[in-house]
Design a protein around this nucleic acid. Structure first.
Lengths: 233, 233
DNA sequence: CGCAGATGTGGCCACTGTCAACATGCCCGT
DNA sequence: ACGGGCATGTTGACAGTGGCCACATCTGCG
């Protein structure tokens, strides 16, 4: 390499990677690649390609990641937090005074946000779940894992369901297990839209299906306390 | 290659593939590979490996499949019919005299069969849906596609829901869209068990979750006609 | 100032999908 | 009956990949 090469890189990418940002740069590039290739974007991320994009020779990545899967896991983490934040952003804009309606709207909004993110960021969404297996390697890291779950769509969902009970909309004895039912429903919707036979549906049809499913949840999925409440509209 | 080589192959593998069974043999081998590697088995199927197993040189497959994806699509088809048959087999053993209970049990059994197959045959199940995109190439083959849908888990589900309406258990105005809600629910369960954060659950916990979700469906998912019916037990 | 450890490089291997050119054997029309 | 045509299978090559190895280089610390 001629003189000035590393300087050029340093200038164009803010400090030479020798300073420690190679790992982050690779993950960033990976996220970008996954996003470029819509669904099934995970298969499109190649270690060597990422290294090329970052301006580093192949093999350099092996100083920061054990193997390709570890890098994918990191990207998946980015995707998961992105999903969480997308849902949180939606929840933040709700602002409903009535407590019962607020809790019901929150649950619905989580579902909407979940599916919307899956459709908008298909690659990241699928990777976020496909790469979770790698996280299943460590058996006994209870505390940290607990925190991870708390700050995840699953945590948001659990809090919303608890709120529904507190507010008196959801019967306490219908609460256990409701999180899995709700989660499965929206996750199934997302997956069927992304890779199932439902992927050719138009936006309007998709929205209709999503709203129908979310209405079913609100209507008495886990068993509401009664029929005293009108539909959300 | 010395003389006798092709003869040997012909003898050892039951008639030379020149006779037209190469395509089927490749698909069979592919199914086996997918089954060997539990989940994510689709990534494990390599054209060259399959050719090797079948005892044929690489590239021979290109006389029967345009590319790897087409072969995967064929394997996916096998998986989809296997799923359909697994569900049908469960439905056949039901034999409930009461019409209402029969319809409700059928719906529940479809859900059970769906999830059970996904867990038992993870590779085939995931491939069956992951490779559906390839099927999305032809836009206007309406009649044949209709038949395909009819003879699929989706068709079975639709018939079960129609039966629930006929029998008076499900309100007719709650019928539209119910198929998507039900399907999403079981599909979501399957996917979360297979590749989501729920994959480390034990069989007992899984079954509990599945039964809870299916009970929620029976209890009034799409809106039953009333609370006159006791739980299935 | 100099050395050790972190970081990045180049070469190599096995493997894959895919294309192009070549060989082989079966079937059908004359 | 036979010979050519065509489907089928083979060989070889190319570009790409993940993953190891031994080597170079830079950095920070004693």
């Amino acid at each position: 390499m001629p003189v000035g090469w590393s300087t050029l890189v340093a200038v164009s990418t803010a400090r030479a990677y020798h300073h420690g940002n190679l790992r982050a740069a690779l993950v960033d590039a990976g996220v970008q690649v996954v996003r470029e290739h819509g669904a099934a974007g995970a298969d499109a991320v190649a270690l060597r390609d990422l290294a090329r994009r970052v301006g580093v020779s192949h093999n350099a990545a092996y100083r920061h990641f054990a193997d390709r899967e570890e890098l994918l896991g990191e990207i998946a983490g980015v995707g998961m937090t992105a999903l969480t934040e997308a849902i949180a952003a939606r929840l933040a804009t709700l602002g409903e005074p009535d407590a019962v309606r607020a809790a019901r709207l929150a649950l619905r909004e989580i579902g909407r946000g979940y599916v919307a993110f899956a459709l908008a960021d298909a690659g990241l969404f699928r990777l976020a779940f496909a790469a979770y297996p790698s996280l299943a390697g460590a058996p006994a890291m209870e505390p940290e894992l607990e925190a991870t779950v708390e700050a995840s769509p699953f945590g948001q969902l659990n809090r919303a369901l608890d709120a529904l009970v507190e507010v008196g909309y959801l019967a306490p004895d219908a609460r256990p297990g409701a999180e899995f039912t709700c989660w499965s429903l929206v996750h199934g919707l997302a997956m069927l839209f992304l890779e199932g036979p439902l992927q050719r549906l138009g936006p309007a049809e998709r929205e209709s299906i999503v709203e129908g499913a979310l209405a079913a949840i609100d209507r008495g999925f886990g068993g509401t306390t009664g029929g005293a409440w009108p539909p959300l509209g």
